[in-house]
């Protein structure tokens, strides 16, 4: 199976903090790949690495045969036209209407006449069900609608790859269902490749072809949703089952509780003497 995105042995540190060590993962063309993991392990960072906004200290990140970290600025901008990213907040331009937001990438990267842009924009908005909301400003949209509008903008240039950053975070069950269905439908009808970074296990497992679980700076488990359900790993089980305590401890690392309480008491009595 041909990999559209191929990440090989990537090391990445943000300042002092090591985020990835020898991370490798592949995204096959035409598939929906889920990347899951506990909060704060740098899932968004992974997408920014693929988009070339961050550069790894070591390793290769290949997108359709281009090694992203070594590309020149202009080559990177060329490659970016073939991918798009749906940000957690939607990142719609607040000073433009929904219509103008979707038209924006077309105006920037094509010389299409206005009538053609209009048709494309309306088609994309129809696909996400917001054709009637084209004249609204982003501030007038609900969270779910804003994300759908951003999705319409993301597919405006018919990219090969869409990266979703926490697409389901903070959505009510209905808009979550709408988004899950949209992602699946778009992927199938447009022949896209999708990477979904999330921790909403149930939703993403219903549509993903393949999934990676990242923890401790590395991939700890991978496989199809069915395979992952069978993995005999305490951390994977905790994550997939959503249990409060396990290998990922409920408590932030701290001194012994009883010791801590006693020490505090001693300090207070000490100071009162």
């Amino acid at each position: 199976m041909e990999a559209l995105v191929d990440i090989k042995q990537v090391d990445f540190a943000h300042g002092q903090r090591q985020i990835y060590r020898q991370l490798s993962l592949q995204v096959p063309r035409g598939k929906i790949v889920a990347v899951m993991g506990p909060s704060g392990i740098g899932k968004t960072t992974l997408l920014r690495l693929i988009g070339g906004q961050l550069r790894p200290q070591q390793g290769q990140i290949e997108f359709a045969g281009h090694n992203i970290p070594t590309l020149s600025r202009s080559a990177l901008y060329q490659v970016r036209q073939r991918m798009s990213m749906l940000f957690q907040s939607g990142a719609l331009f607040t000073d433009m209407s929904v219509y103008e937001n979707v038209a924006f990438p077309l105006r920037e990267h094509s010389n299409l006449p206005e009538s053609m842009i209009r048709s494309i924009v309306l088609m994309k908005l129809q696909a996400v069900g917001l054709r009637g909301a084209r004249d609204l400003m982003p501030a007038e949209l609900s969270g779910g609608m804003a994300r759908r509008a951003a999705l319409a903008r993301a597919i405006a240039l018919d990219p090969e790859l869409i990266m979703y950053d926490e697409p389901f975070a903070g959505q009510d069950p209905i808009s979550m269902g709408v988004l899950v269905k949209l992602i699946k439908d778009l992927n199938d009808s447009l022949g896209l490749t999708s990477i979904i970074v999330t921790h909403d296990v149930d939703e993403v497992m219903s549509i993903a072809d393949y999934a990676y679980i990242i923890a401790d700076q590395q991939v700890v488990a991978k496989g199809t949703p069915a395979e992952l359900a069978q993995v005999d790993n305490a951390l994977v089980k905790q994550f997939m089952g959503g249990e409060a305590d396990g290998p990922v401890a409920f408590h932030y690392p701290a001194d012994d509780y009883a010791q801590d309480l006693l020490a505090r008491g001693a300090a207070v009595t000490g100071s009162s003497k």
Binding site: R80, F87, A91, F93, T94, P105, E108
Partner: peptide
């Protein structure tokens, strides 16, 4: 600052539009 906080600048970059120029 707000455009940065709401990821609008990042999103421009990902759309292959240089935020400095745009």
């Amino acid at each position: 600052g707000l455009m940065k906080a709401t990821e609008q600048l990042s999103s421009l970059e990902m759309m292959a539009v240089d935020p400095l120029r745009r």
